[in-house]
Design a protein around this nucleic acid. Structure first.
Length: 463
RNA sequence: UGCCUCAUAGCUCAAUGGCAGAGCAAGCGGCUGUUAACCGCGAGGUUGUAGGUUCAAGUCCUACUGAGGCAGCCA
């Protein structure tokens, strides 16, 4: 008999169907004459209620084994449930216990656990309702991202994980080496002799695939990266990871307007996809995690994002009836409290801030005619803050060289990047989306470590 | 990295400087439709670690370790 997924049975299963399911016991309720066992196989939030009667062979023994966490295969017949709570249930005719879970030592109980506690058992937490819902939604987000770009003819490009360019300025990098750290080769001056290392020069884990995406956009017009990136920043917040996934579309023949249009359409698409495909999980988040999640999703889908320039944002912040901890002044970067004020209090929806001062933004962003600001845009989401950062890139060789020089970056390391402006340069633009921040935003989960299966953060690499 | 908060039973939390407790989980018993099942019973502790103050420390002080929140950095 073919094994059926529980999500399929709950939706499509009909009375009198003979079926087989495989999964893990969530809870068991024993009565005098029979017992209920809730089985979950990860396909849905809801469990399948299995009814065990004493006429089952080895009834007492099997019942003893079916504790929370045990893995099980059940064959039987679907029946309409005589009680409320479920449309159908499975009347077991044969039960196989694959692996028991000793209730004395199995950490998961049939009760609520704190996320802090569940982080300590990262190898088991995916078996809970909350993490099941999170990772199904995470999967749906990833699917939606690919579908969105593929429908629009974007090529998915695989940016390298290991890179030699340390000049992007996105943050501290993890070094990659094959040296024996107890015996590192030294030059005569006692400096580390990278010529003897694996790549013959310093190498790092990538902080962004953008520069490589630009390379590929100059051949395929529209591309996107979707993969892991790394930051060695000692950031201990609910919004930062040392290893996180980033989506970075890059479009040739595109300006900042087109970039913003794509970003907005993109977010709307993903929210709609998840609402359509994971309604049960989203309802769960709305009920148990954050009761504004569904309203937020509808808000995203149905409303235009607010767009304003950095200069206008500063003006609004200056006349805001609110005391900020950090000063507001043209030329200073927006602090978290400022971003939150704009997105959460003033506009109550995502806000796109554009045209930041050149001094506080990266070298590759296109200089405006005022020569003070660059064609940058950040999308600020309520609660999460910056969820997308993007820009129109500087496509003019001389301007780019000037910016590289003024920011003290070694142009030699960027020779191939500058070549893109020497040979067939075009206006182009792109953005980076923090994938985990998107999932956070989508689910209402408070800590970013709870929306990635195996979070890497300072002092955190156990699972 | 800085500031703040916290660490007590398996989990979530109580306990005026004076006998360390509850709910849930787990165990045992009961219950003919449960679904966070319900009812009853018993068990469960070197109060994170190391020092210190005190007649007396879970409680006050110091350090360390770990966790959380906020901030910076950013996505």
């Amino acid at each position: 008999m073919v094994t059926r997924r529980i999500a399929d049975l709950l939706r499509n299963g009909q009375p009198d169907e003979s079926v087989k399911v495989q999964g893990w016991v969530r809870t068991k309720r024993e009565l005098k004459e029979f017992a209920f066992v809730e089985v979950n196989d990860g396909s849905s939030l809801a469990n399948l209620q299995v009814v065990l009667n004493p006429d089952l062979s080895d009834y007492a023994k099997v019942l003893k084994q079916l504790n929370t966490g045990a893995s099980v295969e059940v064959e039987g017949v679907l029946v309409s449930s005589p009680a409320k709570g479920q449309r159908i249930e499975l009347k077991a005719s044969a039960v196989t216990v694959y692996g028991e879970a000793d209730p004395e030592t199995y950490p998961l109980q049939k009760k609520r656990h704190s996320f802090e506690f569940l982080r300590e058992i990262g190898h088991l937490r995916s078996r809970t309702n909350s993490f099941g819902a999170v990772f199904r939604v995470r999967n749906a987000c990833a699917t939606a991202i690919h579908q969105f770009f593929q429908e629009r003819g974007f090529i998915w490009v695989h940016a390298p994980i290991i890179t030699a360019s340390d000049c992007e300025g996105a943050g501290e990098m993890f070094a990659v080496t094959s040296f024996d750290l107890k015996d590192v080769p030294r030059t005569e001056k006692q400096e580390i002799d990278y010529s003897k290392d694996f790549f013959g020069r310093p190498a790092y884990l990538t902080v962004s695939g953008q520069l490589e995406a630009e390379v590929m956009a100059m051949a395929f017009s529209n591309v996107y990266t979707f993969g892991p990136t790394f930051r060695a920043e000692n950031s201990n917040t609910s919004r930062h990871l040392a290893e996180f996934w980033m989506v970075e579309p890059e479009m040739a023949f595109c300006d900042l307007e087109g970039d913003m249009d794509l970003a907005e359409e993109f977010l709307k698409y993903i929210f709609k996809y998840v609402l359509d495909n994971c309604p049960e999980d989203m309802e769960f988040f709305n009920q148990r995690i954050d009761n504004s999640v569904l309203a937020t999703a509808e808000n995203i889908i149905n409303n235009q994002f607010e767009r304003l320039t950095y200069t206008d944002a500063i003006a609004l912040l200056e006349k805001a009836d609110k005391q900020f901890e950090y000063p507001v002044s043209w030329g200073l970067d927006l602090q978290s409290e400022h971003e939150r004020y704009l997105a959460e209090e003033l506009f109550k929806k995502p806000v796109i801030v554009t045209d930041y001062p050149a001094k506080i933004k990266a070298f590759y962003m296109r200089l405006n005619d005022d020569e003070k600001t660059v064609r940058a845009m950040d999308i600020l989401a309520p609660k999460i803050g910056e969820i997308i950062g993007g820009s129109q890139r500087e496509e003019r060789l001389e301007m780019l060289q000037q910016r590289i020089e003024s920011m003290g970056i070694n142009a030699k390391d960027l020779w191939w990047y500058l070549d893109l402006r020497r040979f067939g340069t075009v206006p182009h633009a792109g953005f980076g989306l923090g994938f985990e921040r998107l999932v956070q935003f989508m689910t209402g989960m408070g800590n970013i470590r709870d929306v990635i299966p195996f979070p890497r953060a300072p002092l955190s690499v156990e699972f």
